[in-house]
Design a protein around this nucleic acid. Structure first.
Lengths: 145, 145
DNA sequence: TTTCATTGAAACTGAATCAGTTACATTGAG
DNA sequence: CTCAATGTAACTGATTCAGTTTCAATGAAA
C-alpha cells in the first residue's frame, strides 16, 4: 500500500501554521480543520505526534489555547515530518516465514533488508531537501492559478 | 502503511526462479510456494502480474506446466518488479477534500504532487540499480552464514 | 475562584486492503 | 484421452485507517 494520508495531512497542518505564523498566536485544531477539511480530533492526534517530535507547541486551556510552530518553517524538513508521523518501515517483508531449508528462502530476507534500507534512505534524502517554507511558497504559487 | 509484502514475495519468486534457471524447466507454483512459505494461489496471482509485465513465461497444461524467467536475471531490475506488482502511487493525498476557499487548502495538493513525484522517482532510481542476479548472489552469501 | 474554550484520550464505526483458502472450470503436453 | 497444472471467482479473518462521539483534564482570563 501507500504512505498514509496522515503524512499529507501533517504537511497540510504545518504549511497552514507556517502561513499564519507571522501572528504569534496559537490556533485551535478546529480552525486548522476548516482548511484541511477533516475532523479536529484526527488533527489533534497528528498534532500530538508533531509535538512529541518538537515540531509544534501546544497551549492548553483558556481562550487562546491551540497550536503553533516550534521552529521556523525553513527549519522543518519534509523528512522531519515523515519521521514524526510515519513509524513503520517502507517495505514489508514476508508475512509468513520463508522455508529455511531452501537456500534462497534462508538468505533472501537479510538480502532484501539491505536493499530495502538503501532504497528507503534514497527516499528520505530527497525528502530532507524540501522544507515547510518551500511548501508554503509552492502552495501559494499553485493556488493563485 | 508500507509497500505491500506482495513485492517481497515477487522478488522471492524471481530470485528462486533465477537460482534454478540453469535447468531450462518450467516450475509449478506449488514448488515455488515451498520456498516462499505461502499458498500457490497467492503466488499465481503475483506470477500473473509478472507474466503480463513480460518478466516470466507460463506453460499451461501437461506434466511440465509451470513458470520460468522470460529474461536473464541480470536483465530484470528491482524497478521492473516494482512496476509490475505495485500499481498505486507511493504517497496518498487527502482522503477528504481540502477547503478550496482557503489559500493553502487550494494550493497544497498540486504543491505536494510535485514533491511526491520527485521523491517516488528517487526511490525508483535506487531500485533500478539492483537486479535479480544481485539478489541471488546476495541471498546465497547471506544464507551460508 | 469561577468560567469556559480547548486539548487529550478512549471507545467505537465503516470502509478498505491484504493474505490466505476453497473450489472448480480451463488448458494443453504427453 | 489423461491429468498435472493454471486461471479465477468467492469467501474469510485480520489489520489498518479515517472519522465520530463522548467526556475528563487543562489552564488562561475574567
Amino acid at each position: 500500500m501507500a504512505i498514509v494520508s496522515r503524512y499529507t495531512v501533517a504537511l497540510h497542518i504545518l504549511t497552514w501554521l507556517a502561513y499564519w505564523s507571522e501572528k504569534d498566536e496559537f490556533f485551535p485544531s478546529d480552525r486548522i480543520a476548516n482548511s484541511v477539511g477533516t475532523s479536529p480530533v484526527f488533527l489533534r492526534r497528528i498534532l500530538g505526534q508533531l509535538a512529541k517530535a518538537g515540531l509544534v507547541l501546544v497551549q492548553h486551556g483558556g481562550t487562546g489555547a491551540g497550536w503553533k510552530l516550534a521552529r521556523l518553517p525553513e527549519e522543518i524538513s519534509l523528512l522531519d515530518v515523515y519521521e514524526a508521523v510515519v513509524q513503520t518501515p517502507l517495505f514489508e517483508l514476508h508475512h509468513s516465514q520463508p522455508n529455511p531449508s531452501c537456500i534462497i528462502g534462508n538468505g533472501i530476507q537479510p538480502a532484501l533488508q539491505t536493499v530495502y534500507e538503501d532504497s528507503e534512505e534514497a527516499l528520505k534524502r530527497r525528502l530532507a531537501q524540501e522544507s515547510i517554507r518551500d511548501l508554503v511558497a509552492s502552495s501559494l504559487e499553485q493556488g493563485k492559478q
